[in-house]
């Protein structure tokens, strides 16, 4: 994506975030005014700094968007076009092998972080994750790359050795408790 389109999209996301933070901070100031704190003065309220940050985020996002649209005669139509372009670029990304590899990799890491760690003994979960990830990368990798050349036996062995080393280092040497 073009740098200016990226800036426009980034600005829109930040504008939404800044608005939310500012609104939440106003509610916070209201809550702090009630018992038990009863802080009615804005300048000492716990919501003051987040409010300032939220407003700054809104201001900077507007400046970022304005900077990315600078030099265009019809900034509003360019702005709308850029948002449309970014949506179509996102759709097109699903047809890109690199993007899909990264997406699947991220999903696998998500599953490991949110569902495997803490629910399955660390050693077993780690070996399973490493094998799954390396097998996936073996097939996702470009022809000729050494990851692709690695056979299943090497992958399983690498996963077993790596997981065992991590467990040994942290649990035996550093006396920590792994999840």
């Amino acid at each position: 994506m073009d740098e200016k389109i990226k800036d426009t999209v980034f600005g829109v996301v930040l504008f939404a975030l800044g608005s939310y933070v500012a609104a939440e901070s106003v509610l916070m100031i209201g809550r702090a005014a009630n018992p038990p704190l009863r802080i009615r003065q804005l300048s000492v309220s716990p919501g003051l700094f987040p409010l300032v940050l939220g407003l700054l985020l809104v201001l900077f996002s507007v400046l970022l968007i304005a900077g990315s649209l600078k030099g265009n005669e019809k900034p509003l139509s360019v702005f709308a076009d850029r948002l449309k372009t970014s949506f179509s670029a996102m759709r097109a990304a699903f047809g890109n092998n690199d993007f899909l590899s990264m997406l699947i990799g991220v999903v696998m890491m998500f599953v490991y972080c949110f569902f495997v760690v803490g629910n399955i003994p660390f050693w077993g979960g780690a070996v399973g994750f490493l094998v799954a990830m390396m097998v996936f990368l073996r097939f996702a990798g470009p022809a000729g790359c050494s990851a692709r050349a690695a056979n299943l036996g090497v992958i399983v062995l690498t996963a077993l050795v790596s997981a065992s080393l991590v467990v040994f280092l942290f649990e035996k040497i550093f006396k920590t408790v792994l999840p």
Partner: peptide, 22 residues
């Protein structure tokens, strides 16, 4: 190869993040 190394590095990231507060 980074494709073999990075899953192991991710495992270390998970452990590193966890051990701060268990």
């Amino acid at each position: 190869n980074k494709k073999l190394l990075m899953p192991v590095v991710f495992l270390l990231c998970v452990v590193g993040a966890y051990l701060i507060n268990y």
